[in-house]
Design a protein around this nucleic acid. Structure first.
Lengths: 345, 345
DNA sequence: TAATTTATTCAAAGCGCTTTGGGAAAAATC
DNA sequence: GATTTTTCCCAAAGCGCTTTGAATAAATTA
């Protein structure tokens, strides 16, 4: 391993005590300005880096954030995770935080959280993909481990920190766009509704329909893992059904290519025979604008959310007594080529 | 925070010295069987968990593996990362290893590795998405930080541990399948060729063409980020070109839905007018079998690779003097509906 | 000038674990 | 029975950092 100077050596080198050097480096006030300058300079010159383990042991703070991915790997998490973490990662490293990632494995999720809390392995955790009344919230509260939820756990919004996008509003607005265009039969191809975000989306959709006096029809509403294949299957199914919808709303871009295939196969012109809108998390490998026709979307960057979630959590860790942050992000509806007036028969 | 018993308390509770308790728990031989039993039992009963920071400080081993994702986030990494880490995660946690993840941020990648090595923050790292003559290999070798590469860094295969799939063989075989079917003009829609895997794939493709006496034609070979949009654009471009290819080879499933859209738009029947083969990493949201027609693929689970890479790295860490592992995995060619005999004109 | 603050620094005591170097029984060997 | 070995356990010394409690010198106040 590489040679590495420790505090004691650095102190001797500087003819100072460890105490003073430590204080100088950590910005404590009781150290002479000139001394601090010297310490900083020499430390930089010799490339001194405090041993993180020693630091953690001494302070009890780990400067690490935990991300625990469920072992059943709900499909939601999958492609979205790397984007979220990419956003969060910038903030973490800018603040000197490490990410401790735990994926699946034999140890069950609950045990991992308990271990984290007990051992101080992390200073806080991010809860992703919350479900209705998610058990993690109770557990983490009980463990007194700082945490923030990306999303919400159903309709209880108090008692925990969260950042969510306005899924309900987005789907209300998108549905309204369609009804305004004259569509009376709008199908919903939703993600798995055990996830809160999917429930919210359905609610928004139903609210908008209700505003037009349209009763939601379960026959054209599906709730399923967000995959290309399901997109194809559900779209094909709905578009070939009796009294087929003239517009479809998708909970994810992952559905979309499948759905477009289905439409092509059925010789339905997208944007005229059938209108499509998808929620777009901004996945880098799937660009709504590049489709033909370009896709009308509800857009919200999951990456940006990752960054903000990280910021909020770090603030919470640094100021434990501050009130819990709640942020509800607006979702932009971007109208492009895949939506058009309802066809007249 | 939750109460937490430490070794000292546990020892007192057991009327033993810390030494003995520590040894009992860590399986050292010089402790009486009956004593060990007692220790284990009580430890389990009170839910004792050693403080990881203290352990790390004392042993100098972190029991953590580092994954550093480049800040420029080459698109390759993105959707594949979560799958890889899902496979690795199981192994890590089964062996008591944590994952330390670093994504982007201001600190540059090299500094992160240096920090890891110097501070012992991780016991080893996984290098993902290697490029030709990847600088990380030299750096990590120099730092004497155990590492394993998922993929290879060009044609130097010695001097570092790696696990790779036989990209060259796979593309040779796939190309051969097409030429055997009578295709004489086969297009290649490759990933970015600064990545080794993409170079190898091109080589395999060219070898198979050469075997039939076909000279590779740069006009029908592209190298680009693996996105849906690029799949569409490149396929459309190639399929509308003068003397268009009758078959296309894709480096990723991410290209595929775009390409199929293009084919549909051009009214080309997949499997007869144009044959398609894609490399399939087994991304959970994109299933080759579910497409219509089902897709002929070169299949290799990135998740399984993640698991094996983790295993190998842990072995390397535990037995530093063992020879460096090299594993080249075979890739299965699964023939489905998207390939057929070359059309006769 | 004496008494009090203030500004700097330091020695030493942890943080909770592993590990070294003994040491006292118990067992084995002579 | 005396000596050596083995078995089992312990006290204490780190690992490299932070932090407490004092100490010294300089500056201020009385």
């Amino acid at each position: 391993m590489i040679v590495c100077m420790n505090l004691k050596q650095l102190a001797k080198h500087l003819n100072l005590s460890q105490t003073t050097v430590s204080r100088a480096l950590n910005g404590y006030p009781e150290v002479n300005a000139e001394t601090r300058r010297r310490v900083d300079e020499v430390a930089r010159k010799v490339g001194y880096r405090p041993n993180p383990h020693a630091m953690r042991l001494a302070t009890g703070r780990s400067h690490a954030i935990g991300h625990v991915l469920p072992s059943d790997r709900a499909l939601l998490i999958d492609p979205h995770f790397s984007d979220f973490i990419a956003g969060a990662g910038d903030i973490y490293s800018a603040n000197g935080f490490d990410v401790m990632l735990h994926v699946g494995g034999s140890e069950d999720e609950q045990t991992v959280y308990r271990r984290y809390a007990q051992s101080g392995a992390v200073d806080g955790v991010v809860v992703m993909g919350p479900r209705l009344n998610d058990w993690r919230i109770n557990l983490l509260t009980e463990l007194e481990l700082p945490f923030i939820v990306h999303g919400r756990a159903g309709d209880t919004e108090d008692g925990y920190a969260w950042l969510d996008i306005d899924n309900r509003g987005a789907f209300r607005q998108a549905t309204k766009l369609l009804t305004d265009l004259g569509h009376r039969r709008v199908g919903l191809i939703n993600g798995n509704e055990t996830f809160t975000f999917a429930t919210h989306r359905r609610q928004g959709y139903e609210e908008a329909l209700a505003a037009c006096g349209i009763a939601p029809d379960p026959a054209i509403m599906t709730s399923d893992a967000m995959t290309e294949e399901n997109g194809y299957r559900q779209a094909k199914h709905l578009l070939t059904s009796e009294n087929r919808p003239s517009a479809l709303l998708f909970s994810s871009m992952l559905f979309i290519s499948g759905a477009m295939r289905a439409a092509h196969e059925l010789n339905l012109q997208i944007g005229s025979d059938v209108s499509l809108i998808a929620h777009d998390d901004g996945l880098p490998f799937l660009n709504a604008e590049g489709l033909v026709p370009s896709l009308t979307t509800m857009r919200s960057s999951i990456r940006a959310a990752g960054g903000r979630v990280a910021e909020l959590l770090i603030e919470m860790i640094n100021t434990p007594d501050a009130p819990q942050p709640h942020e509800l992000w607006n979702v932009d509806l971007i109208v492009r080529g895949s939506t058009g007036p309802a066809p007249k028969y």
